[in-house]
Each structure stands twice: as C-alpha cells, then as structure tokens.
Amino acid sequence: LAANPARAVRFVAEAVPHLDEIPVVSWLPGARPLSGLARRLAGVGGVPALPALPAPRTPFSGPVSQHRRFAYVSLPLEEVKAVRKAFGVTVNDVVMAVCAGALRGWLAGHGGVPDGPLVAGVPFSLREAGVQEPGNQVTIMIAPLATHVADPVERLHEVRGAMRLIKDRSALAPARWLREFSASMPAALMGLAARSAFALVGETAPPINVIISNVPGPQLPLYVCGNLLLTHYPVSVITDVSGGVNITAFSYNGSLDIGVVTDRTMVPDAWELAAHLRAALDDLLNAESSLPH
C-alpha cells in the first residue's frame, strides 16, 4: 500500500504515450495527438499509428450474464502449418484468420455480418527474453478482425496486416503501463472499480467484440502419473467489456486445441461456433490446394 502512490505516478508517466491504445480513452478528443506528442518527447519515434476501431454491435456485445457455455475442437497443426507455408504468413495469423472466418460464419446465421471489421482483444506477452520473474506479464492489444471480408485468402492477408501492425508497435514501445496500473491499485478497490467500470462500459460502448488468444504449447506428449495427456482445451474468461465470446487456442503435440467460451444467453450453442472453426480452416486449405505447386 505504501508503494501505491509511486506506482500510480509511474503508471501516468508510462500510460500517456499509449492513450491511443486504451479502449474508450482513445476515443476522447485529443487523446491521440497527446499520446503522439508524449512519444516524441520520450524519444520514441517511428511507432505505427493505430487506426480508429469502433466495435460494431453484434449479438454477443454488451454485459454478460452469470451463465456460460463451453465447446472445443482440435485442428491438426500440420494443416495450419500448410496454410502458413502456402501463403507466407505465421501460425498466429492463420489462427486469427480461422477465428475470423468462424465468427463470420456464425454471424451470417444470427443477424448478419457487420459491414466493418470486428474488434478483437489479443493478449500479448511482455516478458523479455531471459527474464525469470514469476507470474504473468501480459497485456491486451486491440486489433481489427476482418470478419467483413468474404474471401478467405483476402481475409487472411487482412489479418496478417493487422497483426504485423500491433506487433511492430509493441516491439518499438512495449505497453507496460497496464501492469503498473494494476500494481498501483489496492486489490479490493481494484475489484470494485473494475466491476463497476466494466458494467458501465458494457452498457454504453463496448470497445471489444471478442477475445482471441493463441498460446504456443509443447510439441511432445505429456503425462500425468503415467497417463498420457490427449488434448489440452483452454477455458478462458468473458467480461462485459470484451463481449460474450472468448476463443483460446493451445498448440500441443501436433494439435491445435481450441476452447470456446460463450455467454449462454448471447450464444446458446457454443458447439455451432466451434464447428465454424473447422469449416474456416477447410476454406483456407481448399484455397491452398488450388495454388500452383
């Protein structure tokens, strides 16, 4: 508690150059010019500008209920890598494009696909090479998700461009302000403030439509008391701010194991969305097979 004021000062100093990355705050008048000025004063040049990303309304936007649905699917990592190699992208690009295709397929049958991209929250690690400190060091970057693009290959390249932008920006100006902000707030106060703020933002202008995370895992079999671990399906969280869908992928022993968590009232059939993940990868594989070899 004694260190909180000092941490709060560090948070303010480190957060100002990143105002254009903070959902809701980035939309306030003057936020983007101020963050650009702060970066120049700090000697951080050449940071790619982030586009304005208003999150469109979807059936899974807004405050979530207390109830969840969970579904899962495994995709062969070999197929994901085949798409990666054919189109010169990364495995993460393919995962994001598959998720974009799945969400597009689901939205097409549930009220229609928005004209613009969805806005995805994408967790990124802040841990530097060689750092052995315990605990997570993660922030969430905001990126457009090209659900509005019908062609699967064009969608993949749109996703690749968005992922490259936020990675380049993060590499040049790592967003450690979020960790300082969390450390500056007493735990009890932070919990109350977060619940109140999330509920308010979820009701008015949710900044994110969906959380999508891709976690690289071990590519060898693991055992628990001599029993082979067959699959590893992640179960993650949804919030009022991030919307009623979370898709988290974990690669393990040649498989991409994906867990889909939804709000039961918004997306009652999580298995339908999980099935669209398989279909979206098939679309990319069919496009890959039509390329000249």
Rank of each mutant, 00 (worst) to 15 (best):
A3N: 06
A3E: 09
N4P: 02
P5I: 03
V9M: 10
A13T: 05
A13W: 09
E14A: 15
P17Q: 02
H18W: 14
L19I: 12
I22H: 10
V24F: 15
V25Y: 15
W27C: 04
G36R: 15
V44C: 02
R57N: 13
F60I: 14
S61M: 15
V64E: 09
S65D: 02
R69H: 06
R69F: 08
L75D: 08
P76W: 04
E78D: 12
A82P: 07
K85V: 03
G88E: 02
V89E: 06
T90S: 15
V91C: 08
M96Q: 11
C99A: 14
A102N: 04
A108W: 02
G112W: 08
V113N: 12
V122Y: 11
P123D: 10
R127S: 12
E128G: 15
G135H: 03
A143P: 08
P144T: 12
A146N: 04
V149K: 07
V153E: 05
L156Y: 00
H157M: 12
V159K: 03
V159S: 05
R160V: 00
G161S: 11
G161D: 08
M163S: 10
M163G: 06
R164T: 06
I166V: 15
S170D: 03
S170V: 01
L172M: 14
P174K: 01
L178M: 03
S182A: 05
A183K: 01
S184W: 02
M185C: 14
M185Q: 15
A188M: 03
M190E: 06
G191Q: 08
L192R: 10
S196Q: 05
F198H: 10
L200E: 08
T204G: 03
N209D: 11
Y233E: 06
V235I: 07
D240S: 04
V241F: 05
V245A: 13
F250W: 10
S251W: 00
N253A: 13
N253C: 11
S255Q: 13
L256K: 04
D263V: 00
M266G: 11
V267N: 14
V267A: 13
V267K: 13
A270Y: 06
A279Y: 09
L281K: 07
E288H: 13
S289Q: 14
